[in-house]
């Protein structure tokens, strides 16, 4: 219509905002990571990688993601298919499944703290069942495995919802006729799931997995609430470098490292789960 400038006018605030608060700080992070006292250097990365905690944090973060994400994927698929077959109470079930979506990671950590703490509900339950006679320290510095399990459970509990919602929305896009056709041709429910749902759901699976993996690398508050310093992870270490150790440049290097593996995995899943344009619904 009149004035080709209108769309640009409407986009200007958002664009300016993203430039100032997204692109610019990103450039700053990159700059700080590669400089120290005004000169270009890779020292920050050397310091980062040289820290005894670094391999542990990398291992913990990756291991946590590797355990959590596949379980979440299966659970999200289960939730999504279950809900789609439900005749009554569908929206109630969906709402309940989606609740953790609105809960912060810190709150999720605290919720599971109520269960795993020494005076938590798990100890009471176990003693009621007669398994133990005095409370066990699940989250002590010696019990790394139970901390890991508690964090993993809290993460699974908290962040399955986001995958479920994406998958439910994706399943809604698959026309019913495909299932009916498959049924007519004699496909069992399981076969229909494997042959129809999964392939047609691939774009949604792709976004769900990418989003989830990136969020898994950012795990922070859940660990802080449950494990404290006993289960160091990447984001927690970054926070440490920034505040406890007061070294901005190494913190920036950490940030860049997290960014690098995030982008690496994004590209990986974009490639592996790629759907050719002509094969989309």
């Amino acid at each position: 219509m009149h004035g080709k400038a209108l769309p640009y006018l409407l986009l200007t605030p958002a664009t300016l905002f993203l430039c100032v608060f997204f692109l610019f700080p990103f450039a700053l992070v990159a700059f700080e990571a590669f400089t120290r006292d005004g000169g270009f250097t890779l020292d920050n990365f050397r310091t980062m990688a040289g820290s005894w905690k670094f391999p542990v944090t990398v291992r913990n973060t990756l291991l946590l993601s590797a355990v959590v994400v596949p379980i979440q994927l299966v659970m999200a698929l289960l939730m999504a298919t279950m809900v789609s077959r439900l005749e009554t109470g569908r929206s109630a079930a969906l709402y309940i499944f989606a609740i953790p979506l609105g809960i912060s990671d810190l709150a999720a950590g605290l919720i599971w703290l109520a269960i795993f703490d020494q005076s938590g509900f798990l100890n009471t339950l176990l003693s009621n069942l007669g398994v133990i006679d005095r409370p066990v320290m699940f989250l002590g510095y010696q019990s790394k495995l139970t901390i890991f399990i508690a964090v993993a459970l809290a993460e699974i509990w908290r962040a399955t919802a986001i995958m479920m919602v994406i998958l439910v929305a994706g399943m809604g896009l698959i026309p019913r006729e495909y299932y009916e056709a498959a049924e007519v041709f004699g496909a069992s429910p399981w076969k229909r799931f494997i042959k129809i749902t999964l392939p047609l759901l691939r774009p949604s699976l792709q976004t769900a997995i990418i989003l989830r993996v990136i969020l898994a690398f950012e795990v922070f508050a859940v660990v802080a609430a449950l494990g404290g310093t006993n289960l160091p992870v990447l984001m927690g270490e970054t926070y440490n470098w920034q505040f406890t150790l007061q070294d901005r440049n190494v913190a920036a290097a950490m940030a860049l490292f997290i960014l690098a593996i995030s982008i690496g995995f994004t590209l990986f899943f974009l490639r592996v789960l790629r759907v050719p344009k002509e094969a989309r619904i």
């Binding site: 608060f21 997204f22 700080p25 990103f26 990136i214 690398f217």
Partner: peptide
């Protein structure tokens, strides 16, 4: 530009800011 934000651990940008 908008979609790109999704591949970034955005809270980290708080550090330089």
């Amino acid at each position: 530009l908008v979609l790109m934000t999704r591949a970034f651990p955005l809270p980290l940008l708080a550090l330089p800011l």
